[in-house]
Design a binder for these strands. Structure first.
Length: 814
DNA sequence: TTTGGTGTGGTCTGGA
DNA sequence: TCCAGACCACACC
């Protein structure tokens, strides 16, 4: 028979005779689930042996058992390794689990073995790569079917864009804390098929639809297991379920002797260690913890400073969680009144996860298609791992051998290298400027890599021509111009695919499914393209090449300085610029004149740029402010605010956009910027700040307004300098709060203590009366406000004592 | 074993 | 007591 199916998850089994069977969980067009078994694929790795000793080496290892594994086949292959041809032996063995041992044995026991390669690629990925099958795509399976199980004799990839309807379920657990013990009080499960259920322990009496009450945790967990098995979702998702819900569920299940066999075919969940992070595999289902995806991939591109479900939902959906504090919830549990409210809250969390998944799943699927990683892996990987997976898959296609991951020793060497010189940042012209035009290079780093063919295999080639025509500025490096490098080749593919998709997107309905899918695809391509430069300089990378990363920034400096010189020739004054952007202005020109000149400049620049390089017009700004560095006369880089023509403020670097300043100071600074840039009214700004300070003095504020958030970036014992947030954390830990490396500490500064650190207190244990008003005036509000106002010659005294109005007309032209 | 370098600014720390 | 430098967090691109 023949069957068209969509791959959801993939793993393998080992038969009794120690042979692997690839197992693919999938769905057909009608939404029916199938499991495909495929036996015709064996694990292997490569051995690089001194050429003249190849025959004798083969003789020695052939037909022997090594480290308990059988060698099935040895094949001599010609491959390419970092630009050089390499003759290697492909060693095929019977059992994927034995690959590390066999490899180690061969490496350790045969002198003629120079190196071993590709021994650490997970078997499921090896299968996909070698057969050019991407997960999250359609395949045609040929074989014998019985009870939705297919024993496949052949598997072929099929190009098809659509995605079958999937059964997606989200779950969430709430706990009840009592006498140092934690009980699972509630589990809600919500599906995209309309299924909705809450399992609850007994708390007083309440009646609510779709809720089932249990006397014990044990019964409750059992029911959870039953529901998952019975509803049989394709995808099971949650928010921070790797870190909280599943570890708790596992602990309790073990305690009560319940089997968490919620996988397909009754298989049990497995704990998987990824580095020092634990996660859980549910065989046959796609288990996604979207918090991990947000944390690893989305966090740098989103605005919110905390990654709670509430904040992330607000950013992507426009609405957040239902309101309920932990304390309130515990009180409700304890008193057994109003439990409905918690159930509603808990179910809503699941709904949010489902809603977020509508946005994230297409992205995950796209990334999975590009990298050949499973959805499970894509969801939990970091940038470097995504880039590496993409390169790994393409290495096979190009007959390249992948470099090995650096071992401990190599890592040490790489770590010790001093950082290389990075991007160029202009010193801003301080003050308020009017009529500002901003340009930036479109995807600068990817463009440089492609245009200058920056790659390990093209680095410092022998050709004289390349030395002359593709030399790196400031450095004694050059890159080959005859042969396309491995990295630029595949980076260019990403850029071009993205351009194609963006073109298509222009002509389709923004609300259509197709648009969402393609838009996610182009976004995924962008993520990978932008991460490639960083990957080259990442010490943990297989394709690490410091000189390549160094060359990219050298070209960056060359280009940005070049165009700034050209801009000057056009009578454009350089206000500021950072890495790939340039801000220009000219006091003596009108808006229209300026835009015309800018266009001429842009044309000239783009005509002179080659390859993928392109300068873009980002926008015209009515006004902008650039401030000075603290106690210094020079302009502060990376701190400015621009007012766009649509009257919106774009604020960069200021305290307003930082997490480690209290809301009060941040709001005041933002409003000062608004008043200055929009209304041009300095006196109003001064009055405003003075008034806010008075409000503070009168205790007219909320505790959350004065809360400062800072992260514990290391283990608490590792701190050499005890900062306020560290003290606050220490105090909180003593009082039983669970805080560790990675926690974000909300704290306030109180009156009690001599140093600021001593005065720091975890916000939960502070009251309004404890607040050190002077600290907030002198160390929060005033610095934040004066950062902006001092550029207009306003001083602390002007705000605190000054009653006379400043005449400031000289700063503005009307 | 959490892509890169550049940059600002607060607080602490220890020696003058 | 003062101050420079170290430490630390977080932003920009």
């Amino acid at each position: 028979m023949e069957k068209l199916v969509f791959i959801l998850d993939i793993d393998y089994l080992i038969t009794k005779d120690e042979k692997p069977v690839i197992r693919i969980f999938c769905k057909d067009e009608n939404g029916e689930s199938y499991t495909v078994y495929y036996k015709n694929f064996l694990p292997y790795f490569y051995v690089y042996v001194e050429e003249e000793k190849i025959p004798s080496f083969i003789e020695k290892i052939k037909e022997t058992k090594i480290a308990g594994a059988k060698i099935e086949e040895i094949e001599i292959q010609k491959k390419e390794f970092l630009g050089k041809e390499l003759k290697v032996l492909k060693i095929v063995i019977n059992n994927p689990k034995k690959v590390p041992k066999v490899r180690k044995y061969i490496k350790d026991n045969f002198e003629e073995v120079i190196e071993t390669f590709e021994y650490d690629i997970p078997f499921y990925r090896r299968f996909l790569i070698d057969n050019d099958i991407s997960p999250s795509s359609w395949i045609k399976v040929v074989g014998i079917e019985k009870d939705k199980k297919i024993l496949a004799t052949r598997i072929e990839k099929i190009e098809l864009q659509k995605i079958p309807k999937m059964k997606i379920y989200a779950f969430d657990i709430e706990v009840f804390e009592e006498k140092n013990s934690q009980k699972i009080a509630l589990i809600s499960i919500v599906g995209n098929d309309g299924f909705k259920k809450t399992l609850s322990l007994e708390f007083g009496s309440f009646k609510i639809e779709n809720c089932e009450v249990f006397k014990t945790e044990k019964e409750l967990i059992k029911k959870f297991v039953d529901i998952v098995k019975e509803r049989d979702p394709d995808i099971l998702a949650g928010y921070n379920t790797d870190g909280f819900d599943f570890p708790l569920l596992k602990e309790k299940a073990e305690k009560y002797g319940i089997e968490l066999n919620i996988g397909k075919e009754n298989s049990k969940i497995k704990t998987v260690k990824r580095g020092w992070i634990k996660t859980f595999k549910i065989p046959g289902r796609v288990y996604l913890d979207i918090y991990v995806y947000v944390d690893h991939i989305l966090s740098p591109t989103i605005k919110t400073e905390v990654l709670t479900l509430d904040a992330v939902a607000k950013e992507f959906l426009g609405y957040g969680k239902k309101e309920m504090s932990f304390e309130e919830m515990q009180k409700i549990f304890k008193e057994g009144k109003n439990v409905e409210k918690i159930i509603e809250y808990n179910v809503w969390d699941c709904e949010l996860v489902l809603k977020l998944l509508e946005i994230f799943l297409p992205q995950l699927i796209s990334l999975s298609k590009i990298t050949y990683l499973s959805l499970f892996d894509v969801c939990r990987n970091t940038y470097s791992q995504l880039v590496e997976a993409y390169l790994l898959k393409n290495a096979f296609k190009d007959n390249q051998i992948a470099p090995n991951k650096p071992k401990h020793e190599e890592l040490q060497i790489r770590r010790l290298k001093t950082p290389y010189k990075g991007a160029f940042v202009f010193e801003p012209k301080t003050g308020i400027h009017e009529n500002i035009i901003v340009f930036d290079f479109r995807s600068l780093y990817p463009s440089i890599i492609v245009t200058h063919n920056i790659s390990i295999d093209t680095f410092n080639c022998e050709h004289q021509k390349c030395k002359e025509e593709n030399k790196v500025p400031e450095l004694n490096y050059h890159f080959c111009t005859f042969k396309k490098g491995f990295i630029p080749k595949h980076l260019e593919f990403l850029i071009e695919e993205r351009a194609k998709i963006k073109k298509i997107l222009k002509n389709i309905d923004k609300n259509s499914e197709e648009y969402k899918l393609l838009d996610s695809f182009q976004y995924s391509l962008k993520i990978l393209a932008n991460a490639t430069y960083g990957y080259l300089g990442y010490i943990g990378a297989r394709w690490y090449k410091r000189e390549c990363a160094e060359s990219v920034t050298a070209f960056e400096r060359f280009y940005i300085k070049n165009i700034s010189e050209m801009a000057k020739k056009f009578n454009l004054e350089i206000i500021y610029g950072d890495t790939d952007s340039l801000m220009v202005s000219n006091k003596n020109l009108t808006r229209e004149q300026l835009i015309e000149i800018a266009n001429n400049f842009l044309n000239l620049v783009n005509n002179s740029l080659k390859g993928k390089m392109e300068l873009e017009y980002r926008g015209f700004y009515i006004r902008g402010i650039f401030v000075k560095r603290r106690e210094k006369e020079i302009g502060a880089k990376k701190r400015y605010a621009l007012l766009s023509e649509s009257n919106e403020l774009e604020i960069r670097g200021f305290e307003t956009v930082r997490r480690d300043w209290c809301k009060l100071a941040k709001n005041i600074q933002r409003n000062v910027l608004e008043i200055i840039l929009k209304e041009n009214d300095v006196n109003k700004a001064i009055d405003y700040v003075r008034n806010e300070i008075n409000k503070l003095k009168n205790y007219d504020f909320k505790l959350e307004d004065v809360t400062i958030y800072e992260q514990l970036t290391k283990d608490i014992s590792e701190y050499k300098q005890i900062s306020p947030h560290v003290i606050a954390a220490k105090k909180a830990i003593q009082r039983g709060i669970n805080l560790s490396k990675g926690s974000i500490i909300p704290f306030v500064i109180t009156k009690y203590g001599s140093s600021i650190s001593e005065k720091a207190e975890y916000v939960l244990f502070a009251k309004k009366e404890d607040i050190d008003i002077d600290y907030y005036i002198n160390n929060q509000i005033l610095p934040a406000a004066l950062r902006v106002l001092s550029i207009l010659n306003i001083s602390e005294t002007d705000i605190l004592k000054g009653t006379k109005q400043k005449s400031l007309h000289q700063f503005f032209k009307f």
